[in-house]
């Protein structure tokens, strides 16, 4: 280990030239780093490039959300129905349990691990700031979630076209569904990301996300239904502002995309729904960025 120390002649040392050379070629900029980080995050959300075990959960959930879509396509093709029994946006709403579980299960992969194992400091030592790191992580999660919702939607769409349903009807339905899914993905990724970056134990992060996505939605739905049956429609619609899935269903209803709500959303409620959704999503992203900046600077 120690290179040439000669006893008797005092301490001496030498650093050998092993032929390492400085790299002074072109370097990729922050954009390329962010792009790589984004793609890696997206793959990790589905367990790709990770151990075999970590692929089980995302693909099991994806498979479960594809199964009903495949059955619907089969039924439409075999019985010659003239329309799909459920709209694309409605399908996402009805499989919300699976989407929520996917988000809750996979957000800790993207948001907790680097903080828990302190590998965030390795990223922070690169030109990309830790704030940008948080943002890119959110982007990966959003796109992963979007893909989770879009894939069954596309399966149904292709099935509908093969069954000879009207193309322009299906296209406009698909368009509405995808736009709604983009908004929802951004919101849910923000929420689960924030929860997971604060609660670093996987179990608690998952339960925390489930509380917001599933329990809160259950509470809101209960309140909406009760208010509707009591005849206070504005309370019912107003309650819908308080959970991600009721926002999604409300907007889908306002846009005639075929999602079910107890009381239809119209008038000034529509911009309110959009505003709340955007504000909460933006708030979560800001919170996420602040969280990563704080942790990365330590």
């Amino acid at each position: 280990m120690s290179e040439s120390t000669t006893p008797g002649t005092g301490r001496s040392g030498v650093i050998h030239d092993l032929g390492y050379r400085r790299y002074d070629g072109p370097r990729e900029g922050t954009g390329a780093i962010a792009r790589t980080l984004f793609l890696t995050g997206l793959r990790h959300a589905y367990g790709l490039e990770r151990s075999g075990k970590s692929k089980v959960m995302p693909f099991l959930l994806l498979g479960m959300s594809l199964l009903p879509a495949a059955i619907i396509v089969g039924v439409v093709v075999l019985t010659g129905l003239r329309s799909l029994p459920v709209t694309y946006a409605g399908y996402t709403s009805q499989t919300q349990l699976l989407v929520s579980l996917f988000a809750a299960a996979q957000a800790p992969v993207l948001f907790s691990r680097d903080l828990r194992h302190r590998s965030i400091v390795l990223y922070a030592a690169r030109p990309l700031s830790s704030a940008a790191f948080g943002f890119v992580r959110w982007l990966s999660m959003s796109v992963a979630l979007l893909a989770f919702m879009v894939i069954p939607t596309l399966l149904m769409f292709v099935g509908a076209l093969l069954a000879g349903l009207d193309k322009s009807d299906q296209l406009s339905d698909l368009y509405k569904a995808v736009v709604l899914q983009v908004f929802l993905a951004a919101l849910v990724a923000g929420i689960t990301g924030l929860v997971s970056s604060v609660s670093l134990r996987r179990g608690f992060a998952v339960v925390g996300s489930v509380m917001v996505l599933i329990v809160l939605t259950g509470v809101v739905t209960a309140v909406q239904n009760i208010a509707q049956s009591q005849g206070s429609d504005s309370v019912s619609v107003g309650a819908g502002l308080f959970s991600p899935w009721s926002l999604y269903s409300g907007l889908g209803n306002a846009w005639d995309a075929g999602t079910r709500v107890p009381v239809s959303v119209d008038g000034a409620w529509v911009p309110a729904y959009v505003l709340v959704l955007l504000l909460v999503a933006a708030g979560c992203v800001l919170g996420l960025v602040a969280r990563f900046r704080k942790v990365g600077s330590r």
């Binding site: 339960v207 509380m211 329990v215 509470v219 309140v223 009760i226 009591q230």
Partner: peptide, 30 residues
């Protein structure tokens, strides 16, 4: 809250609809 604001059985229905099938197992899981 629901019991205070409504009459009828709406408040109780939250329990078999939400409390029992969701909150109880979530607490047990946690």
């Amino acid at each position: 809250l629901v019991a205070a604001l409504t009459d009828g059985d709406a408040a109780f229905q939250i329990l078999p609809g939400l409390g029992y099938p969701l909150v109880l197992p979530l607490v047990a899981i946690l």
